[in-house]
Simulated scan of single mutants.
Amino acid sequence: MEKVYIAGKITGDPEYRMKFGRAARALEMTGNVVLNPATLPNGLNQADYMHICFAMLDCADRAVFLPDWNESEGAMLEQAYCAKTGKPVAFLAGV
């Protein structure tokens, strides 16, 4: 069982919960434990979200990036962090 963090565009995407939910279900169907930032509550500030997301990312065995990840400042930071620390990544298409 692998712990997988999902990264992608949230800010400015009104459909982000649905998009992340589809990705989470697909990853769970292959036996993964999914760490999904789209399940966090509304009302926190951007810094709070990033602190929580980086904690989830640190706990994950791998990060999976949705197709729109490069439209998100936060996801681009997460990708750079993975590259710097050697965290394995995968890039999903068609989610």
Rank of each mutant, 00 (worst) to 15 (best):
N36T: 04
E28V: 14
D13H: 08
L40A: 11
K87Y: 00
A90P: 01
A38D: 02
M1E: 11
V34T: 04
K19F: 00
A26W: 10
G86C: 12
A7V: 07
M18N: 09
E71K: 07
D13C: 14
N32P: 08
G31S: 12
K9M: 13
E73S: 10
N70P: 00
I52Y: 05
N70W: 07
A93I: 08
F20N: 02
C53T: 01
P37E: 10
E71L: 10
F20E: 01
Y16G: 11
T30E: 15
K3G: 02
R22C: 10
K9T: 09
K87F: 01
Q46A: 15
R17L: 05
Y16Q: 13
F54K: 13
G21Y: 03
G74P: 06
A83D: 06
P37C: 13
A26L: 12
Y5Q: 02
E73C: 06
T39E: 15
A7C: 10
V64H: 00
E28G: 06
N36V: 03
P37M: 13
A83C: 05
G21Q: 05
A75D: 03
I10T: 10
M50A: 15
K9D: 01
Y49R: 07
T11D: 09
V4G: 01
A23W: 04
G86R: 10
A93L: 13
E78V: 04
M50R: 12
Y81D: 04
